[in-house]
Design a binder for these strands. Sequence first.
DNA 1: AATAGCCATGCAACGGAAGTGCATTTATTT
DNA 2: AAATAAATGCACTTCCGTTGCATGGCTATT
Lengths: 138, 138
Amino acid sequence: MEEIENILENKLVRPTAMRMLVYQYFMGQDAAVSLTHVENAFDKADRTTLYRTLKVFEEKGVVHQIDDGTGTKKYALCEPGCNCELEQDLHLHFHCARCNETVCLTEHKIPHINLPEGFVAEDANVVLKGLCDKCSEK
Amino acid sequence: MEEIENILENKLVRPTAMRMLVYQYFMGQDAAVSLTHVENAFDKADRTTLYRTLKVFEEKGVVHQIDDGTGTKKYALCEPGCNCELEQDLHLHFHCARCNETVCLTEHKIPHINLPEGFVAEDANVVLKGLCDKCSEK
DNA sequence: AATAGCCATGCAACGGAAGTGCATTTATTT
DNA sequence: AAATAAATGCACTTCCGTTGCATGGCTATT
C-alpha cells in the first residue's frame, strides 16, 4: 500500500484512500476494466467519484483507455515507464467475443505505419477480436 | 440509381427506396458517417428505420462499422469485392482530433500480427488519431 | 491553533446513442 | 384478391458518460 502511494505521487496524483484502493483493484485484474466494473467492486463509493478517478488516472498516465468496440470504455494500468507514446508504448489489445474480456498484449507494440501525405498520427487504438486463449480451448 | 439497385441485390439486400437513398448518401461521403449523420440527411425518415438500414447494410457486407473512439459508431461503404476478411479487406482508419472526421485508409491493410498461443483473431478495429491532411496544413 | 482555501467526494440530474416491442404499411407470392 | 412476409414508423427503455452544485476533509498560511 505504501508502494501504491509512491506510484501515484510519482505520477502527480494525490494518493487519497479511494484512489489507492482503485489502483489496488486494477493490480488484481488481468483484463481491462470498465467504469461499471469498478463501480461493482466498490459499492459504497459514488459512481462520479470513480468516474473522475479513472479520468485523473488517465490524464496523469496511470492507466490508458481502450475502446474495444463494445461501446463501453475500458481501462488498464500502464506499464512501468510508459508514456503512452505511439510506437513506443502503445500496444495491441484483444477482445474475446465469447468471454467478452479485453486484454492488453503489451508485448505487441503498434508497428510503424506510413501514412499518406499530410496525416500526422499521435495516438492509436488497435483491437483484435476473436477468441482468447482461454475460450479457444473449448 | 439502377446501379445502386444492382449492387444491393448482389449483396442480398432488398433494394427499397429508402435503402437506395441511404446508399446514395454513402456514396457522396468521403468520411465515415454515424447514424445521427444519416438521420440529419433524411429528416423525413424515422430513426429506427435508418438504424435498421445500417444494421442490414452491415450484416450483408454493404458497409463496415468503425469504432473511432468518439463513442459514436461510424459506417463506411465496403470496397468492391470486400468480404470484411482480416488481412485481406480490413484497413486502417484515421480519426482527426480537429475536424472530428473519420476516414478509411483503404490502401493500408492491417498487417499480419503474430498472436500469443491460443488467440484466434477474426476481426480487427484499427484507428489512428491525430491531424488529417486537411487540418495539418493550417 | 484558527482560518481560509483548495481539492476530493457525493448527490442529482441531463443528454446522447443504441436498442426493442408492437402496430401499421408496403411489397411479394400464390 | 388473399395470404404471407418484409419494411417502416412510433413510443419507450436502457446504458453509459458527463456536468453542476453542495458538502466534507485536508493543507497551508498566518
